[in-house]
Design a protein around this nucleic acid. Sequence first.
RNA 1: GGCCCCGUCGUCUAGUGGUUAGGACGUCAGGUUUUCAUCCUGAAUAUCGCGGGUUCGAGUCCCGCCGGGGUCACCA
Length: 487
Amino acid sequence: MADTHVRTRNAPSPTGTPHIGNTRTALYDYLIAKKYGGEFLLRIEDTDAKRFVEGSIEKIYAIHEFLGLTRDEDPLIGGPYGPYIQSERLKYYQEYAQLLLDMGAAYYCFCSEERLKKLHEDNQFAKYDRHCRHLTKGEVQDQLDSGAPYVIRTKLPETGFTVWHDLVQGKLSLPNTECDDKVLIKTNGVPTYHLAVVVDDHLMKVSHVLRGVEWMASTPIHLFLYESLGWKPPILAHVPLLLGTDRSKLAKRHGAKNVLQFAEEGYLPEAINNFLFYLGFSYKDNSELLTLSQMAEIFDETKIQRQNAIFDVKRLDYLNGQWIKRLSSEDLLSRLKTFISADWLAQKEKVIQVLNLTKERMLTLAEFAPAADYFFNIPILSQELVLAQSNHTQEETKAWFDTAITVINKMTVILANAGIHPENSFTSENLHTELAKAQVDSGFTPKEAFMSLRVGISGRTVTPPLFDCMVILGKDETLKRLSSVFP
RNA sequence: GGCCCCGUCGUCUAGUGGUUAGGACGUCAGGUUUUCAUCCUGAAUAUCGCGGGUUCGAGUCCCGCCGGGGUCACCA
């Protein structure tokens, strides 16, 4: 491999937002390119206009951008081997199809759609019967002259095996009889995948082709084309599929999401990259937090798993939670923009303070807003809820609240840079000391005392540490909420 | 159906003839004496798909079977 300059490509079809499995392959492509100091390119395979979905290409860019898979060559920035959209490369395909025709590695086929259909009606697994393969030169010319529609097919060997070494699958050997003479150029003059990939990968000097195992069976066709054209084939790597929990190919009915949807749900690109990385590759305990460049260093394309992998979102959750904890609150804030209101966004300092408390209990970014709501909006503070926690009568609980209010009232608010720290300043530490003292004399257990106060300021039983929450709320707001419970 | 690939805890996996089959996620229990989470500790979960071989010895090699997946379009 030292003798070949490494160039990998992600070559999706614009038929919708790429599937998570395609994205994993793109990640691996990117890592291989970076590992060897090569280039990572994007090529759009839009040879089937019927299946084109508006906006797909933008989604592909969006996924790359979100994940940080920067491209060296693509339809936007161009590159030395452009264009990078197959529909703009038709002349190349025609040229090489003609060459194939001339050398006898391909032939014209005039079979009608009906005839082909009949073939499959008789046998659903029927291959093309090579009806036009043995037409004489004259017969072909006559058809051509008459303007009959035609396709161009490969003239595959009728015997023997195609053998190659696959980077992930190892030595592979497929009987040539299993492949039929696939169409290379369709009636409309547009190539099929088989011709287009081969021509483009060669012309774009792609060194490694990573693709799903579903392409394994048609590899003999591609290799035949490389050989006929006298080209050196790239290194092939057929990567396994991603499966749903029922072990069938991951699909919409499994609720399979694409990367953009995970982003919307508050998953970090770092976590998604790590998750995808470990799904099919092993390093240490498979849960280390790794940056893209660290992954590129570690990745070994020869050690990609051969088994299909089941997508387990629990692992993604774990990785995401770990990344959220690791990131600074300032960094997190910048990623929170689509998850919180402009109103909150305007209170940057406060959001950061809340983030400091909540980030270790968040699995996704989307969990922030609901978990932090009572810091920004006054919650419903119900007496019933407080009483349920205090485990005392209404009067006793009111007395405890009054005590707490008195204690807090005595505390002074110190401005951030005042520099002085009186012992009874309004800090988490002092709140803890003073309220704990008061609790001892209250006849309440710590749990009863503090859980009731927790509900008294937040309206809920689950929050970050009580005193930290009070500090963020501020003395006035804390008092106001506490006083409102027992008017 | 033909051909091809795959088969170690629920999940991702380590393991290249000799290991008490290891780790991580998840699960359960305990601890950090106010909740939740984090963190720490511990536990349970795999007759290495099944059956035959080869070998002193097999998850590791061979054969058969079973199970899962892929493919057999003028779709990619």
